[in-house]
Design a protein around this nucleic acid. Structure first.
Length: 896
RNA sequence: GGGCUCAUAGCUCAGUUGGUUAGAGCGUUGCGUUGACAUCGCAAAGGUCAGUGGUUCAAGUCCACUUGGGCCCACCA
């Protein structure tokens, strides 16, 4: 068995094999189990266009760790998977592939185009799902959902209708963010602001009455002057007081526009006079409403100028800018150009600069929805980890704006609104029918001439329902149901509210906040209890990883090169709570090396294991047998580690848990324990303890590194089932013995000292250190008698010969190591004075610390308030320090 | 303009409510490969915890300010 194990762990041979077996045996599936507590995470559905990147790898590793951990702890753990139809993104991708064939979507028409998108989705839409499987994700794949599934779409429609009936959805003409490339409206969140270097142009507008007199206005978008319908100044501004109410002649267009007064105008900025373009700027829009100005739209949906722009009609907005500036310059009306940094919205899908644009769109009134969602977070019913995101969330929620949900694209949930052409002509209020199913006829005029709204809904209008729509809401349950029917256990009321949400900070507003609102509105309950926000994965220079920057580290490449477990472990161990992750490829070597270490340590245990010896109950065995200190120590360390790791996992401190396991396994189990037991490996107690500790350690590492732990698990004698089906080890607090731990730690300290002294003698025979004394001191500090045997063992392993005897002097144990004792060299003067200096420094440091400690211990504040253990510890520390000073003084004398 | 966050070893970063001698990985240096492990092992060196002031018996940790990075939000034309 053990002979089959190669010297190195080979992830390629194991990963796909075990994943298949897990899946075939339904180990990921979860169902309503009344005798178990549910634990549920819904995956942040990746876009169907998605390709696994490091952000996904991190996000999903964390979720998998939680799910596997909770599953082992006895929860009915469900990880609900799915994908998002990603309206604009997917449409863009399909349009691009059509472009290669020389086809535009308009050539195909709506129906045919959507067919093509579905074809594309069937072909490529599950790429990311396969990649998640490579990552080891234990999602319940049989439940895989898609935001455009038929019943999911039904939920979306239902929600639209309900909100409309509650008067929380309305249609209206407003300035929205318009992407001229995608030719659709965007929500405020979808327009990402970015700074760019632009110019501030000062334009001169002549007075109508006196064409030689001008008012200068400053603008960053001169082409919009074609749509100006006023110039506004502050009523307090002395410079302009006399002009208020007068008329200007808008250059190029020759339109008469009024000079109006409004206190919102900043006198300091630019010239203090601002051009007002109500159809192309949100502030100007408000001014236009207030002052009853004309709204002149000068742009077409594609970002070119329209007929209202007269001779500039047809020019792209940026070309038009140049033309307008050139013409103004010719007329002597371009006063100056000043450099200016401005921030402009960019389409989050194609990065085109968005245009504030007046158009008719559908909106959701958010304030009423936000109320409960704010309260739930304030009262702690939903908790953010790390906590600081609470503030970000609340700040956004308390200033929430209405949500523009209509999109002028084809791929998505079409808005369930029907227009009756017959009625609409008479009165627009009557022409609108909102209905989940297409009505046969107009309820008013019985006309059958109904047309459905062309627009589709924002992608996030479907994903905000994710935590319950994935469970077939509203069929399974609605918040109208009476409480008694809630006892009937459907998936929805068993798993909802879900337990935790794991996501990135970028989508708190897009998704998390909206899910919370939808949860309260449609389920009457928060969708989840905990929100864990992990950091953003960045490259070494702190830049966000993106294809365009070419700084991407592909997780699949890492998996191919280092293995999935290595990828997962490395990612987790460098992600401290809420901090961004700065990633370079070398980081994965640590994970790979750890996997290899686990492999080889297990190989060692398995080759030396007598299976017939180890089939005992550890606790019974522990109580019956007198275990020696090495075995007691490793058991104690194991349970301390178990306790610590569980607490860290429970509080979402994944990196700390990973590092806890790493240092236990590597630096305690391997470095010390396995070395200590080599001389006694055939002993019954050692056989039992080494086996049990390995076996249990594999279980607690499993959530982090699922594949290697399964591979080894299957090679353990008597391994039953999969490691996935094992329970999390039960914490045996009585096996934790801090005194044993302390003494062993001291012994290791001594061994290291000896090793170093020996090494130093070999390197530099000139140096004279009073080794005997130093070593005796080390020992004396720690009362080592019971450990002497182990010291001998370790010394042997380290090729140090040891005297059989230790002697007692002044109540202190002194051990003499033969070769060191013999090889006592003579002094070199420089080194001696160095040594003395060093020791003096140490004494000084100790003395100042002693002063502090003495002050502390004589302070009532401390002795009365601090916990007893700490006071005691401080006292013994003080004594240790005093003893140490005494010894250092002896050493100094010895060196002289 | 508001908010968040970071500054700790040569590098990249941990460090939970203040409390042993501030930790890890990589790098450097030393020692070590005849059976767990060279994708290696063991160890060492390396830190006035960005600066200044404050609270405290006690500050990397709490407070204020300063300096220098990063991020988010906001309608400044």
């Amino acid at each position: 068995m053990a002979q089959e194990l190669s010297k190195q762990y080979n992830p390629k041979e194991t990963e796909d094999k075990w994943y298949k077996i897990w899946e075939q045996n339904n180990l990921f599936s979860a169902k309503v189990s009344p005798d178990k507590l549910p634990y549920c995470i819904v995956i942040p559905p990746p876009n169907v266009t998605g390709i696994l990147h490091m952000g996904h790898a991190l996000n999903n590793s964390i979720q998998d760790i939680l799910i596997r951990y909770k599953r082992m702890r006895g929860f009915e753990a469900l990880w609900m998977p799915g994908t998002d139809h990603a309206g604009i993104a997917t449409q863009n991708v399909v349009e691009k592939s059509l472009a290669k064939e020389g086809i535009k979507r308009q050539d195909l028409g709506r129906e045919k185009f959507i067919e093509r998108v579905w074809q594309w989705k069937e072909q490529y839409g599950s790429t990311i799902i396969h990649q998640l499987k490579k990552l080891g994700c234990s999602c319940d794949w049989k439940r895989l959902r898609f935001t455009m599934d038929q019943d999911y779409s039904a939920a979306v429609t239902e929600v639209f209708v309900r909100l409309y009936e509650k008067k929380l959805i309305y249609q209206g003409n407003y300035i929205i963010n318009w992407c001229p490339r995608c030719q659709t409206a965007l929500s405020d969140e979808e327009a990402a602001h970015a700074e760019l270097q632009g110019s501030l142009y000062y334009l001169k507008y002549p007075l109508k009455d006196n064409p030689l007199e001008f008012i200068s206005v400053a603008t960053t978008r001169p082409e919009t002057m074609l749509g100006d319908t006023a110039v506004a100044v502050n009523p307090k501004d002395k410079r302009y007081k006399k002009y208020i109410g007068k008329t200007l002649l808008l250059p190029l267009i020759k339109r008469e526009i009024k000079i109006i007064a409004d206190s919102s105008v900043d006198m300091e900025f630019g010239t203090g006079a601002v051009k007002v373009t109500p159809a192309h700027d949100p502030n100007d829009y408000a001014l236009g409403k207030k002052h009853n100005l004309e709204f002149i739209n000068v742009m077409a949906p594609d970002g070119s100028m329209n007929e209202a722009a007269k001779k500039y009609s047809g020019l792209d907005r940026f070309k038009a800018r140049e033309a307008v500036l050139e013409d103004l310059k010719q007329l002597g009306l371009l006063e100056k150009i000043a450099p200016h940094t401005l921030s402009a919205g960019h389409c989050y899908r194609c990065h085109t600069i968005v245009e504030p644009y007046l158009s008719k769109q559908w909106f959701v009134k958010m304030k009423p929805l936000a109320r409960l969602a704010i309260e739930a977070v304030k009262k702690g019913r939903i908790k953010f980890y790390p906590e600081r995101w609470t503030k970000v969330y609340l700040n956004w929620m308390e200033n929430i704006q209405d949500w523009c949900i209509s999109r002028q694209i084809w791929w998505g949930h079409r808005i369930p609104v029907y227009y009756c052409k017959n009625c609409q002509g008479k009165n627009s209020k009557y022409g609108i029918i909102v209905s989940a199913a297409k009505p046969a006829q107009c309820p008013r005029c019985k006309s059958t001439g109904l047309v459905q709204e062309e627009d589709v809904l924002d992608t996030w209008f479907s994903s905000w329902l994710w935590p319950f729509a994935t469970f077939y809401w509203p069929q399974q349950l609605s918040n109208n149901q009476k409480p008694e029917t809630r006892n009937q256990k459907t998936d929805l009321n068993y798993f909802y509210p879900t337990s935790a949400l794991v996501t990135a900070p970028e989508i708190i507003f897009f998704w998390v906040a909206r899910m919370i609102m939808a949860g309260f509105e449609f389920m009457g309950e928060a969708p989840f209890k905990d929100v864990y926000i992990h950091g953003t994965v960045r490259d070494v220079e702190g830049k966000k990883m993106s294809k365009s920057l070419g700084n991407v580290i592909d997780p699949l490449e890492i998996i191919a090169e280092y293995g999935t477990d290595a990828l997962r472990f490395s990612l987790i161990s460098i992600t401290s709570q809420g901090q961004d992750v700065f990633l370079s490829k070398e980081r994965f070597e640590q994970g790979r090396n750890f996997a290899n270490k686990i492999w080889n340590a297990s190989r060692f245990v398995l080759t030396n294991l007598k299976p017939e010896e180890v089939n005992v109950d550890l606790c019974v065995f522990f109580r019956k047998e007198q275990l020696d200190i090495a075995n007691r120590w490793i058991l104690s360390r194991f349970y301390s580690t178990l306790d610590k790791a569980a607490k860290e996992l429970d509080s979402y401190k994944f990196n700390e848990a990973a590092n806890t396991l790493y240092s236990f396994f590597w630096h305690e189990f391997c470095d010390w324990y396995l070395e200590l037991i080599k001389p006694q490996i055939n002993q019954k107690q050692t056989q039992v303890v080494m086996y049990k500790v390995l076996e249990k350690t594999l279980r607690i590492i499993h959530p982090f590194m699922p594949f290697i732990t399964e591979e080894i698990w299957q090679r353990l004698p008597g391994a039953k089932n999969s490691i996935m089906q094992q329970s999390w080890p039960h914490l045996q607090k009585d096996l934790i013995n801090s005194e044993d731990e302390r003494r062993m730690q001291a012994a290791f300290d001594i061994i290291n000292t000896v090793r170093n002294m020996r090494a130093e003698l070999e390197v530099n025979p000139q140096s004279r250190i009073n080794i005997k004394l130093a070593f005796a001191n080390k020992l004396a500090q720690n009362s080592m008698e019971p450990l002497f045997d182990h010291i001998k063992n370790l010394a042997k392993i380290n090729n140090l010969s040891v005297n059989e005897k230790y002697t007692v002097q002044n109540n202190e144990y002194v051990v003499l190591l033969k070769d060191i004792h013999i090889a006592m060299p003579l002094a070199g003067i420089a080194e001696v004075s160095e040594q003395i200096k060093k020791n003096r420094l140490k004494i000084e440091k100790l003395e100042s610390e002693i002063k502090n400690k003495e002050a502390m211990l004589s302070n009532k504040n401390f002795t009365e308030r601090a916990p007893k253990e700490i006071v005691e510890a401080e006292k013994s520390k003080l004594n240790d320090m005093r003893a140490q000073i005494a010894k250092l003084e002896v050493i100094i004398n010895g060196l002289r």
